[in-house]
């Protein structure tokens, strides 16, 4: 008996044409002009950023568009110490950021701040790519960085968890 075969490699390449969808398309187009647009649920009035065309809680279509700020508050975060392919140099901070005017945090990269100085409640703002690189993708926001404003008290920021 020769050596057993313990594995074969089958390279797979599949190409897909993704459809962001109606709601996300509108969001992405506005991102390209440095505007962050969410959608407000007609029933519970929560503002979703990015919008998905429906409210996950109420199950109804969302149409009303609301422009939210490109600044917000860190609700929680982690410090990533292991590098992943395509990631920024470690350590870096992956933070949940509740943009002013939005009711759901989005995950963003924090930079221009030492990881150990990041706090829950820290105020941050988006740093956009240069205008000529703006495109309909979330990558148009390079990262978020502290604004220097005073922290929001923890009790205050946790009010968004009201489900």
């Amino acid at each position: 008996m020769s050596d057993p075969v313990t594995g074969i490699i089958t390279p797979v390449r599949l190409e897909y044409t993704y459809t962001p969808g109606v709601a996300a398309s509108r969001f992405l187009k506005r991102i390209a002009s440095k505007e962050i647009v969410g959608q407000k649920c007609p029933r519970c009035a929560k503002v979703y950023v990015p919008p998905r065309g429906s409210c996950p809680k109420c199950g109804v279509p969302t149409e009303e568009e609301v422009t939210v700020a490109d600044s917000g508050t860190v609700t929680t975060f982690c410090i990533v110490n292991i590098p992943f392919a395509g990631s920024v140099p470690v350590p870096y901070v992956s933070a949940h950021i509740l943009l002013d005017g939005s009711d759901i945090p989005l995950v963003g990269l924090l930079q221009e701040v030492a990881a150990e100085d990041v706090r829950m409640g820290m105020r941050v703002k988006a740093v956009w790519v240069p205008d000529e690189e703006l495109a309909p993708t979330l990558l148009s926001i390079k990262y978020f960085t502290p604004t220097g404003e005073p922290d929001v008290p923890i009790e205050k920021i946790m009010e968004y968890r009201d489900a």
Partner: peptide, 16 residues
């Protein structure tokens, strides 16, 4: 090919 809607946007009105 639905060029505009994603899967969920096709599904939502159906479920409702």
């Amino acid at each position: 090919r639905d060029p505009a809607r994603n899967e969920v946007e096709i599904l939502m009105p159906v479920v409702s």
